[in-house]
Amino acid sequence: MTRGWAQQLDYDFLGESPPVFWWHPLAHRGRVVLEQPEIVVRGGASPAVLVSGVPSIRRDVRSTRIRYTLVVEELTDQPGLVRSLVAMGLDPEQRERFGARLDAVFDADTVDGMLSGTVPCEPVVGHLAELLGAAYATHPEPSAEAEIDGSWAGPVGGERARGAFLARIERLAAGEPGLAFSSHALTTVAGAAQAAAEQPDPCAILLVNGVLTEVEPLRAAPVEPSSESPVDRTQNLVGRLAEEAVRLFRCRRPQ
């Protein structure tokens, strides 16, 4: 995904879009900021990686530097590529280099043409596959760090958090369900816990900003379904309301 020079050539995928925008709930609630350098890794049957904020040398009509968001899906049995993409996403220099490689393939005219429909987009997938193959002929070794079970958040600069994040990536790439992502928007344990509670599977979250100095487990507050029917609950509530009113009246009565 990238944008073109003109105002109306807004951010969009070059060529075919992913069938499901699986990262959208995170972005919509502001849990990740795709305008910033973020990583989102989805585990499960079809692991996928999103890396946003990959810088281009291209600029738009307002001279704002354009960026790419790269979404690579169907990464089953490709843990090495997942590792490489995450390593690139976590390292500003690698990100910059990858942006330059993308720019070499997708120059300004090509991008503008693709986004306005005058240049065919079919070659995009082939170009990207070639580019990824060339950029990542060898992959980083699997993380030897200890995994932390369940949902947790940690500082992006923390050694333990980063190690545990990479270890979680291994499990996600192997098909374990869950999400691992960085966040430029979440800053507190409470916020991260809320974001994790919105997901059906465990989350590992690296906070770029905020006050965390160590890895913190995220425990959602247990929600116990009530056995009372709405009518019972209403009647009970009215009863409690009456009791409170009596207590309040007693409180206020002059002695």
Partner: peptide, 8 residues
């Protein structure tokens, strides 16, 4: 920078 997706 401009927005890339919806934000609430």
């Amino acid at each position: 920078s401009g927005n890339q997706t919806t934000s609430l």
